[in-house]
Amino acid sequence: MLSYEFMQRALIAAVIVGMISPLIGVFLVQRRLALLGDGMGHVAIAGVGLAFLTGTEPVITALFVSILGALILELVRHKSRSAGDLALALIFYGGIAGGVLLTSLAGGRASTALNQYLFGSLSTVSTQDFVALGVSALALIVILLRYGNQIFAMSLDGETARVQGIRVTAMSVLLTSMAAVTVVVGMRTVGLLLVSAIMIVPVAAAQQLTHSFKTTGLLASAIGMLSATGGLTLSFYVDVPPGPTIVLLALAIFVVLALTTNSLHLRHRNEIQEQAPHQH
């Protein structure tokens, strides 16, 4: 498998996506914005469609369009929380409808190409994509190291964070923009329709075992990398799209951990109840 150059690229891309996505996702879950990545993914579809139509580079165009969508969404959310929820829904619909329409207007092989962006594709990670992905991931890590603590404080309690002098609105915009970038980072490997899952599912799996935010983020990142590389390898041998395989593997890890920890908790509780009468 590793003798193919495209697989080497795809595997490195999968490691990067698996590592970085849950590190952003853990903040989204903390802010109860687990579906935000989905909204950003849909906006990116419009970006890809626009790129097909204008002949520009899909990754770069999707990046700009997603960040623009993130800023608009934050603006609406800032005005009203309920309007923010509605805005997310409108972005969902507008993004996917716009993306498909722009793609069909582009004609030619664009419709087939769109499929690769929707569900990920092993063979199409170009060197240019690869560089864009690496630079974006590096930027995300630098921003997380610089502002992660402030985003955490804001996610835990925006009001208290504001009293500490943290610029809550700016941090919120930063987080949403980071989610938009993550979506674009993941679109070649996992695909736009499922990229949000690789941000969120590893977090849901990790938090079955953890007691702190930091360990949840780090464990989720490890689960993300495991799912992404494992899913990609499976998709190579079974010849299925990588996106669904990666996400189903992450979900399987979640189910196993949820069942194991729940049964352990139950056993622990039963042991305590059995011991209780002897203490009297």
């Binding site: 879950v29 996610s155 835990l156 309690d157 702190s212 935010f213």
Partner: peptide, 13 residues
């Protein structure tokens, strides 16, 4: 706290 019960957060954090 507004969001204390979503992702696990330790007392120390």
């Amino acid at each position: 706290l507004i969001n204390s019960a979503t992702v696990p957060v330790s007392v120390f954090e």
